Simulated scan of single mutants.
Amino acid sequence: MTEINRALADIATIRNQIAGARLFRGFGPAVVALTGVLALIAAMWQNQQAVQAVATYFALWLGVAVLSLALIGAEMWALSKRYHGGLAGPFLWGMAEAFLPAGLAGASIAAVLYRFAPEAMWLLPGLWQILIALALFSAGARLPASLRIAGAWYFLAGLGSLILASEAGLSPWLMGLPFGLGQLLVALCLYLAGRDHG
């Protein structure tokens, strides 16, 4: 029985190594672009409503983030099954390892700021953007190289948002514009990479 267990463990290791060496094809440009459009619509709506309450600001962007994650996650599952077949599990786990720490950090920071320092919620857009940049960079070997441009965008936009928000405070545009443009840039990079690789 030991030989069988060792062989199964070796097969699992080989599958994980293959998944780590190939590009992940579970992100579709259309759904990613849709999440960018959602961010821009949310910023326009919130700007027209002149929302100043921290709870309303936080609730809207938390809702946009959850909806975006659900859309991207559902498509990741479907595309992974189509493109990676039996290796879909290791591919999805590899992406989770890259993106989950940033996602948990973003949710934790938002919860702590909301609960204990609502006056500092102006930090949230910039911090979330920097965390997305770190996630894109940490997943870099498994994603098209052009996504490093999107990672750089998110990093610079996050720094810019922190600088601008230190004067302006909560602004729907400091959340919506960087995310909207960033997601559209990610979608463009994915589209061009998919066209290049057929």
Rank of each mutant, 00 (worst) to 15 (best):
A110D: 04
L192W: 13
V37E: 00
V54Q: 04
G63A: 11
A111C: 07
L147K: 05
A157Y: 04
F179L: 13
W128A: 11
S138N: 10
S171A: 05
R6D: 12
P178L: 01
S108Q: 07
L69W: 15
F58L: 05
Y83F: 15
V186K: 03
L162E: 09
G86F: 09
I72P: 07
L124K: 00
L38N: 00
M95D: 04
L113K: 03
L162K: 11
Q183V: 02
E119H: 14
L23S: 12
L156R: 08
A150Y: 05
V66W: 11
Y191C: 00
L38W: 00
L40K: 10
R82C: 00
L8A: 11
L192Y: 10
P172E: 04
H84F: 04
S108F: 14
S146L: 03
R195M: 04
A55V: 10
A39Y: 01
I149E: 10
S161C: 13
L67Y: 02
E119V: 01
P172H: 05
L177M: 07
G198K: 14
A78W: 12
G151C: 10
P125V: 06
A12S: 12
A65H: 02
P29M: 01
S68N: 10
L62T: 14
L170G: 00
E75K: 13
F116K: 09
A55M: 08
C189P: 09
R15G: 06
L188E: 09
H84V: 03
L124W: 15
Y154H: 13
G103M: 12
G73T: 11
L170D: 01
I4A: 14
L143Y: 05
R148V: 02
T35R: 00
T13C: 08
I72L: 07
A105E: 01
L38R: 01
H197M: 12
V64E: 00
G85E: 09
G160Y: 08
F91A: 13
M121S: 09
A139V: 05
V112I: 15
Q183D: 06
G86H: 11
L104H: 08
L79Y: 08
R82P: 02
E167A: 15
A88Q: 12
A187N: 07
S80K: 03
R25V: 01
P101H: 05
W61G: 05
A30M: 07
G86Y: 09
A53F: 08
F137Y: 14
S166W: 14
R15E: 07
A9C: 01
L131V: 02
I11W: 03
F137D: 03
I11P: 01
T2G: 13
E167F: 15
L34D: 03
G160S: 13
Q48V: 03
